[in-house]
């Protein structure tokens, strides 16, 4: 059903820390290996060993250079890695445009999913997603997307601490966080509050659930990190300051 739930019980989602992400692609391949055997399996790869290789992925990491932002500090620019996946928006038009009901937003946890058995592969939902989060499986003729690892986060066959999205489980720098953004007291909500987490393209009104923590200001100038200057000691002549009673 492509009508959106008025509210959802929870707002499960990710918080991604752009100040910490080193662009290692771990979340990217871990997502791939989990999901290619998961709910949306397989994530088909085409021309896998040839020119123009192209496959279905749910998570992609870009690299940018940013100028004119406090995060650059004294440098002209700052390199910023930027992971991009489905934001499980609160009012996602990728769902409402779907003619078949294949796309839907869950009322319990807010996860946006595609039911592959209903999907006719019209691709409209991918047009409606501003974030490029949906990827069409050309070979299977259906739309695929990040499931927020719905087949992990509640999975009773996994140890409790492993019941998080694959990308979060693996992130070496802990730049990815998972939780209920609808609960103001959750760790993720507090993190977003304390770090000024933001929405991507808020102007479009999709109200993403996932939040991004912008890179913090660099501490690379005297102003940003005041430290007393080092003053030469000249009083006691050459190395005079060394002459004190030292013991081994």
């Amino acid at each position: 059903m492509t009508s959106l739930p008025a509210t959802t019980d929870k707002k499960l989602g990710l918080v991604i820390d752009l100040d910490t992400c080193v662009g290692c692609q771990a979340c990217v391949t871990n997502c791939k290996e989990w999901n290619t055997g998961g709910l949306m399996a397989p994530l088909t790869d085409l021309k896998s060993y040839g020119a123009e290789a192209d496959g279905v992925w749910f998570n992609r990491v870009h690299t940018y250079e940013v100028t004119g932002h406090e995060a650059c500090g004294a440098s002209a620019s700052r390199t910023m890695h930027f992971p991009r996946s489905c934001l499980h928006c609160e009012t996602p038009e990728c769902v409402t445009v779907c003619p078949t009901g294949a796309s839907y937003k869950r009322t319990t946890d807010g996860i946006v999913l595609v039911n592959e058995d209903l999907c006719i592969g019209c691709k409209l939902c991918s047009w409606a997603c501003p974030y490029g989060a949906r990827e069409f499986d050309v070979f299977e003729g259906v739309m695929k997307k990040c499931t927020l690892c719905v087949d992990r986060i509640y999975n009773e066959n996994l140890a409790e601490e492993d019941r998080v999205p694959a990308c979060v489980l693996t992130c070496p720098t802990s730049a990815r966080h998972f939780g209920d953004l609808g609960d103001p007291n959750s760790d993720v909500s507090k993190l977003v509050a304390s770090r000024g987490g933001v929405d991507l393209m808020p102007e479009l009104g999709y109200k993403p659930t996932n939040k991004y923590l912008p890179p913090r200001a660099r501490k690379d100038s005297a102003a940003a990190r005041p430290t007393p200057e080092l003053k030469p000691i000249t009083a006691d002549g050459f190395l005079g300051w060394v002459d004190k009673l030292l013991s081994r």
Partner: peptide, 21 residues
């Protein structure tokens, strides 16, 4: 706005895509 940054002089330039093809 696509990457969630704001500020009057902020400029964002793409350096590398997530996939070369």
């Amino acid at each position: 706005s696509a990457v969630g940054l704001s500020g009057p002089n902020v400029k964002v330039t793409s350096v590398e895509w997530p996939h070369t093809e």
